[in-house]
Design a protein around this nucleic acid. Sequence first.
DNA 1: AGCAATAATTGTTGTCGTCAATAGTTGTTG
DNA 2: CAACAACTATTGACGACAACAATTATTGCT
Lengths: 173, 173
Amino acid sequence: MLESAGSSTEPREPAITRENVTAKPIDAHEPWMRGLHADTGYLLYRLGLRSGQLFNACLQESGLRLRHYAVLRFLAGTDGAPQRELSTRLGYDPSAIVGLVDDLEKLGFAERRPSPDDRRSRIVVLTDSGRDFLRDTDEAGLRVTGELLGPLDPAERELLHALLLRIAEEGLN
Amino acid sequence: MLESAGSSTEPREPAITRENVTAKPIDAHEPWMRGLHADTGYLLYRLGLRSGQLFNACLQESGLRLRHYAVLRFLAGTDGAPQRELSTRLGYDPSAIVGLVDDLEKLGFAERRPSPDDRRSRIVVLTDSGRDFLRDTDEAGLRVTGELLGPLDPAERELLHALLLRIAEEGLN
DNA sequence: AGCAATAATTGTTGTCGTCAATAGTTGTTG
DNA sequence: CAACAACTATTGACGACAACAATTATTGCT
């Protein structure tokens, strides 16, 4: 577990199990459904929540949470970034980054290195161990995604991914 | 203390203005981007977050948050539901519903009525004022959605909406 | 009548997000 | 070149919130 500075014992499992995340099916013809999901934005919000829950459920056995994962994912594409960049790019508060990197460092997934240019900034790099972890959890991620995208066939999934990506390109964090 | 993630969700008076939510555009060709958004599930999560932020930014001037909105939206389709149903259907803890309905009642958007069948359950109904509010904010919602879905043309938006709806039908709270 | 189950509610606790403050470092400018 | 402004990482404090447990009132069962 990781509890960085908190140095505590039990992180108190968030009780997000597959069972209570996966809820009862929905009939789109019920009136309340029409009311709820009328708007694409709101729909996106709800589904994002659900996706996050599923992801977290997968991650929690490794003691990490989505934010850690986000940092790792980011690092995987940059080979080394100062914390400041993590903050702005991922949209987390600088003080949040500190704890996240602490945790990752404690698990050996990342490490801080002094910047050659600027002595106040510290560059976070992904370790081999971190890269392994990332590859392993990618499978879990795909499993989750498969679960989430259940009713869609491969072509539709591809389409959805493309659409979402287009939206994301337009200013995400 | 374990992190503390940034520029994000929905505290009472968040510094979530349209300005700092809408951030710098993203180039999908940058390597970190490929790392970050490789998975549809994760992508969905990030976009859901963003959508929630935008929604909250719109709602905050009325003193409500996304959860309140979800309750109102649900009520709009049911004309009266016991709090227990709100809890299970929306996926919120029963104790959370209490506060939410308290707020809505205080603003005159909803009210509790005794259930004729069961004296321990209280039925929450949308008031006319609440219905008005809902209609007003719907416009704002559409505006947000439009902003969010910027790069998509109408046909693509329709397509996205349909896809998301299909996913949502498959078990969403 | 007695007892398990349920609805709403309160209280508690741990976690999170935000802001303010600090220390060390850099760049700038008078 | 010395003073000052800006910036990086970090810590600490505070308010808000979500998850759980416990309480009260009511119902259904046997």
